[in-house]
Design a protein around this nucleic acid. Structure first.
Lengths: 125, 125
DNA sequence: GTCAAAAGTCTATTTTTTAGACCACAAGAG
DNA sequence: CTCTTGTGGTCTAAAAAATAGACTTTTGAC
């Protein structure tokens, strides 16, 4: 129980640095949508459906910065922009898949826990 | 390419429902901190160090609701509260571990990508 | 007597997100 | 010709969320 104990995540730790980007509501959803293949901006928007243009735009930019997705602009009129997962993005699908699998497997437990908690707090009220 | 294609995550889909909770900046950090064993409120705060009391409190409450952590209040004065991972919380450590491992393995690529992007946008400016 | 610590809560300020208008241009309908 | 739709966004104003910091209550140390 000396200084060695835990504290693995100070501010500029790599894990935190990476996961903070992934952590938003939208990033995982976008990556998942692109897992099926290249999509254009508005295709993504329809796919995710309740994301605002601005958030989609911002998150795509972040994902592009971090090298998860590649953005290809076709200089046509009207403009066409295609977003595709990079190899890095694809490699991320593996741990993300496990996370989703876990969520899928356990969501009933979680839902039950939520209900339980709700009922307990009601009976205390 | 019919309706079957993708759209796996509408609003009330379980994955989304679960991951939205996990998705915050703090949840993963809290779970990671508790992976080492039971901690009290202020111990957690020192562990994570740049989390506000309010966010820690709120996130712990959410994690408790969802059944990831158990909260044990000792009715002493001053009050003592201990937070511990439940079995569900522990089982989550597995996919989370893979995610962290991936982040650890790839953060250099991501950092490089960020720098690259930055330089490209500077040369375009 | 004074100060710190416990585990939070409350409020005010700041940041982030959302909703929605707006842009230039072109193709298709009528 | 005009009207509407679709393209990939950006901009602004309003709503929601996060942060910082004071406050609470009781005990033990000094």
């Amino acid at each position: 129980m000396t200084a060695e104990t835990a504290a693995p995540c100070l501010e500029q730790c790599p894990i935190r640095n990476v996961l903070d980007r992934i952590g938003g509501q939208w990033s995982l959803l976008i990556i998942e949508a692109l897992a099926g293949g290249t999509l254009r901006f508005n295709e993504l928007r329809r796919e995710i459906d309740d994301i605002s243009r601005q958030m989609l735009s911002r998150n795509l930019k972040l994902l592009e910065q971090d090298g998860f997705v590649a953005r290809k602009l076709y200089p046509e009129v009207p403009p066409r922009v295609e977003y595709t997962l990079t190899p890095l993005g694809h490699s991320f699908l593996v741990p993300m898949g496990e996370l989703i699998h876990w969520a899928d497997e356990h969501h009933h437990v979680i839902l039950a826990s939520r209900l339980d908690y709700q009922q307990r707090s009601e009976s205390n009220a």
